[in-house]
Simulated scan of single mutants.
Amino acid sequence: MSVLAPYKMPQSVLVVIHTPALDVLLLERADAPGFWQSVTGAKQTPDESWEHTAVREVAEETGIDARAGGCVLSDWGLENVYEIYPRWRHRYAPGVTHNTEHVFGLCVPAGTPVRLAPREHIAYQWLPWREAVQRCFSPSNAEAIAWLPRLGCDGGTG
């Protein structure tokens, strides 16, 4: 059994949840009202796979089972390295200033119910992808959503 580290790992996933019509699910952060984003979350252990992290974080933050029928989880093969916002650096080990983020898309059927984790998010909305790009506070999140029309529900593999 793995023991969770006292600090967050600077390795995380970004999961752009969307419908076949390219409506994107955005979540409003509980610790930063007005900050809208896709699902994000850090690996719990160094050996946790990116895919497992994505599936776990989606379930924790939205109640959506990424492996359910009708859902397609795609590894977009994109990674972002960015500076961690100073307001959140206390969650990481001393001296850690950057995070590596691995990007996934999750295509879900229109009308998929969302159940928020109230400690993490206070609201959600489905927006057309162009509006979602504009609403995101994170540049890397906005950029990932901008890739959506090229990648769609098959992650660009079909």
Rank of each mutant, 00 (worst) to 15 (best):
P6L: 06
Y7P: 03
Y7K: 05
Y7M: 05
K8C: 05
K8N: 13
M9Q: 15
M9L: 15
M9G: 03
P10T: 00
Q11A: 14
Q11W: 11
S12C: 13
L14F: 02
L14H: 04
L14M: 04
V15H: 12
V15E: 06
V15Q: 03
V16H: 07
V16C: 10
V16E: 04
V16A: 03
T19E: 14
T19I: 00
T19K: 06
P20F: 13
P20L: 05
P20T: 05
A21Q: 15
A21R: 15
A21P: 00
L22H: 14
V24L: 03
L25F: 14
L25R: 09
L26I: 09
L26E: 09
L27S: 05
L27K: 02
L27C: 07
E28V: 02
E28W: 06
E28G: 02
R29M: 06
R29N: 09
A30G: 12
A32L: 13
P33Q: 06
P33K: 03
P33T: 02
G34L: 02
G34D: 03
F35T: 10
F35C: 07
F35L: 07
W36H: 13
Q37W: 08
Q37F: 05
S38V: 01
S38Q: 14
V39K: 05
A42P: 12
A42G: 14
K43H: 15
P46C: 08
P46L: 09
P46D: 15
D47F: 07
E48C: 11
E48S: 13
S49M: 01
S49R: 02
W50R: 01
W50H: 05
W50S: 03
E51T: 08
H52S: 11
H52Y: 09
H52W: 09
T53P: 02
T53M: 04
A54P: 12
A54M: 11
A54N: 13
A54Q: 11
A54W: 15
V55H: 02
V55Y: 04
V55D: 06
V58H: 14
E60T: 01
E60V: 04
E60I: 04
E60N: 10
E60W: 15
E61D: 12
E61I: 00
T62I: 00
T62A: 10
G63I: 11
G63F: 12
I64M: 10
I64G: 07
D65P: 08
D65S: 08
A66V: 04
A66R: 03
R67G: 08
A68R: 04
G69R: 10
G70F: 13
C71A: 15
C71L: 06
C71R: 08
C71D: 10
C71K: 00
L73C: 08
L73T: 05
L73Q: 10
S74G: 07
S74M: 00
S74I: 00
D75M: 03
D75L: 07
W76K: 02
W76S: 10
W76R: 08
G77S: 13
L78M: 13
L78H: 01
E79Y: 02
N80G: 04
N80E: 15
N80I: 08
V81T: 05
V81E: 12
Y82K: 01
Y82V: 09
Y82G: 13
E83F: 04
E83S: 05
E83W: 08
E83Y: 03
Y85N: 10
Y85Q: 11
P86G: 12
P86W: 01
R87E: 14
R87H: 12
